[in-house]
Design a protein around this nucleic acid. Structure first.
Lengths: 191, 191, 191, 191
DNA sequence: AATGAATGAGGATTCATTCAT
DNA sequence: GATGAATGAATCCTCATTCAT
C-alpha cells in the first residue's frame, strides 16, 4: 500500500497520536509501538520518519507549542483595544484547543521532561518568553512601567491553573479566563 | 551485620535517596537499583521494606508533603496577626526546604505521576486542600467573603512559580515570597 | 529517468559499492541501504537486480576473485622464464589492485563468511586451488617433485601476509612480493 | 536458585558458550540469547556480568588468547635446546586446544572484528608481537641476525595455515607442525 | 536483616524485504 | 526501470521483582 507523498501525512498522524497517547497516559512513559498503532502505522515507520522516540516526543511538543502560538495569533487578530488584546492572550491559553485534559496532561509531561532535556527546555523557554512578551506588550498601555511585573504574575497564575487543571477539580476554560482577567484588572487598577 | 531496629533507619534512607534520585533525574524514571545504591543498601531491601517501586515513590511523595506541612506549622507558630499567618504560609512554600531545585523537580514529577496514579492524586489533593484552607483561614479576617477566591488565586500563583522555578530563570525563594505577599496585599486591599 | 540498458551499469555500481562498504566497515555487517546509497540507487533496486543481500555479497566476492584472476593472467602474459612466472603470480597477489586495505578487509570478511556459507566456501576453494595450481605449475621446472609442497607453503605465506596486512603494520605490496619470492628461491634451492 | 559466589562460574560459562557459538556459527553474528541459553542462564545475566554483547565478545577473545599463551608456556617448560624451543612454540600453535575447528573459526572471526574494533586490534597486536618475539628469541641462537626475518616468515605461515584450516582441506595439527618446523630448518640452514 | 543472583517481560531500534506506483 | 513507503521479525538491553542463602 505504499504511495508517494505520504511523508507529511504520516508525520502529522504520528505527532497527533503521540500527543494523544501522552495525554491519555499522563506521562511520557509511552511506547513507540502504541503511538504507531494509534497512528495506524508500524513502529518501524515512526523511526523511519523521526529517527527515534526522543525526536518524536520533541516533535509532538513543538506541535503543541505551535498550536498554542497559532491560537494566540488568531485571538489577537480580532482584538481592538489593549484590554481586548490582554483578554485575547488569556482566552487563547484557556481555549478549547489548549485547555483540554489530554493536551494539558501532555503539556505538563513536557514540562517535567524539560527538566532533563535541554532541547525541550529551550522550547518551553521560548514559549514562556513569548507569553511574557505578549502579556507585557498588551499591558504596557494599561500599566506602563508596572507592565512587566504584572505580566509575570499573570503568567504564573496561568501556569498554576494549568497544573491544577491537570489534577482535576479546577475551573473550566471560560471560568479560568474570567478569573485571570479579573486579576489583571485588579492589578492594573491597583495604582 | 544486620542489626535489630534497622527498619526505620533503612526506610528513611531509602525515601531520602528516592527524592534525591528523582530530583537529580528530573523525572520518576529512576531505577530501584540506583536508589538502593544511594541509600547504601541492596535493591532487594527496597522491595523488602516497601513492597515495590510504586510504593517507594509514594512514600517519597508523602515524605515531601509531610515536610512541607511541618514547615508550614513551624512558620505558623511564630505568627501573630492574620497577615503574619498569611506571610508564614507563603514563606513556608518558598522556604529553603521546599524551594530547592531537587525538591521542586521531584515535586513536579509527582504532579505528573498523579495524573495516572489515583493514590498520588489523592495525596496531592489533600495538599492542595490544606494549602487552600490554610490560606482561606488566614485571609478570612482580612477579606471576609472574598477570602476563598483570593486563596485560590494565591494557590495558583504559588504552583505557577514552582513550575517556572523548575525550568530555571525564576525568582529565588525570598523574591517569590515577596511577590506573592505583595499580590495578596493588593487583592485584599482591592475592596 | 530510467533508461534502457541500465542493468549492467547498475549491477557494476552495486557490486563496487558493496566492496567499498565492506572494506570500509571491515566486516560484512553492512546494510543494503548504505550500499545502495553509495551506488546512487534505491535499496529496492539492489533487491531487484540481485534478489537479496546474500546474493549481492556473493557477487561482490566473485568480482574480487575475478579481478584477482585477471591480474594474475595479465602478469603471466609478460613472463618468460619459469621464475618469471613464479614472480608474476606472487606479484599479482600483492599488486595495487588486490593488496589495498579496503580490498583486503573485504577479502578477509569473505573468508569468515565462507565458514558458514557453502557457496562462498566453494568460491574461495576455487581460488585456493587455482593459486595452488598456478604456483605448482610455475615451480615444476624449478623443483620438480617438490613443487606441490613448496607451492603449498608459499600459498600459506601469502594468505598469512594478507591477514597481517589487514591488521596493519605489515609490509607493503612490493616488500611482501620480495619477501615471498626470496622464500621461494630458498625453498627451491634447498635441494 | 541464586547462590553466592556464582560470578566466576557464570562468567566462565558465558565466555565458553560465546566461543562455542562463534565457532559454530563461524562469525560474530551470534545473539546474546543463544549464548546465554548455551551457558544455561538468562540473557539478562549475560548483560549483568559483562555489560553488553561487545564486552562479552571481547572477554571471549581475550580468553582464547590467554589459552594460547598458556599452552605456549606449557610447551616451553619442557624445551631444552633452542630448536626444542622453536618446536615448542610451533607445536603450541597447532596443539589440540588451539587448532580445533571451532576455535579457529572464532579466531578468524576475531581477526575480522579487529579491523573495526580498536580494542580487539590491540589484543591481537599483543598476540602477534608475542608470537614474533617468542620465535625470534628461539631462533637467535640458530640464525643470529637473520632470526627476526625468519620469525616473521614463520609467523605468516602459521597464520596462513590457520586461515586455510578454517576453510577445510588443510593439514591437521601434527602435519602443520611438521611442515612449519621443516620450513624453519630450511630457512635456518640457508646461510 | 540483608544480599545479590537470577529471571523474563517489555521496549527501542535496525534492517532486509516487499510492493504499489 | 526505479523509487521509497511500509512492514515486522529479530535483537540488544533495561529493570522491577523474586528468592535461596
Amino acid at each position: 500500500m505504499p504511495r508517494v507523498g505520504m511523508e507529511p501525512i504520516r508525520r502529522a498522524a504520528l505527532v497527533k497520536a503521540t500527543i494523544a497517547e501522552v495525554g491519555l497516559k499522563g506521562s511520557l512513559d509511552v511506547t513507540v509501538a502504541r503511538i504507531a498503532k494509534r497512528a495506524g502505522v508500524s513502529s518501524g515507520l515512526a523511526h523511519h520518519y523521526f529517527g527515534g522516540k526522543e525526536d518524536l516526543l520533541f516533535a509532538a511538543m513543538r506541535h503543541i507549542l505551535t498550536l498554542y502560538g497559532a491560537s494566540v495569533r488568531a485571538q489577537l487578530l480580532r482584538a481592538g483595544t489593549p484590554r481586548d488584546r490582554l483578554a485575547a492572550i488569556i482566552r487563547a491559553s484557556f481555549g478549547p484547543d489548549n485547555f483540554e485534559p489530554h493536551v494539558i496532561a501532555a503539556w505538563l509531561s513536557f514540562y517535567v521532561h524539560a527538566q532533563s532535556d535541554p532541547g525541550a527546555r529551550r522550547l518551553l523557554g521560548i514559549y514562556q518568553a513569548r507569553l511574557g512578551s505578549n502579556l507585557t506588550h498588551a499591558l504596557r498601555p494599561l500599566a506602563s512601567s508596572r507592565a512587566p511585573d504584572i505580566a509575570r504574575t499573570l503568567a504564573s497564575v496561568i501556569d498554576g491553573l494549568y497544573i491544577r487543571h491537570a489534577l482535576g477539580g479546577a475551573p473550566d476554560g471560560p471560568q479560568a479566563t474570567a478569573r485571570v482577567l479579573a486579576l489583571a484588572d485588579v492589578l492594573v487598577d491597583a495604582a
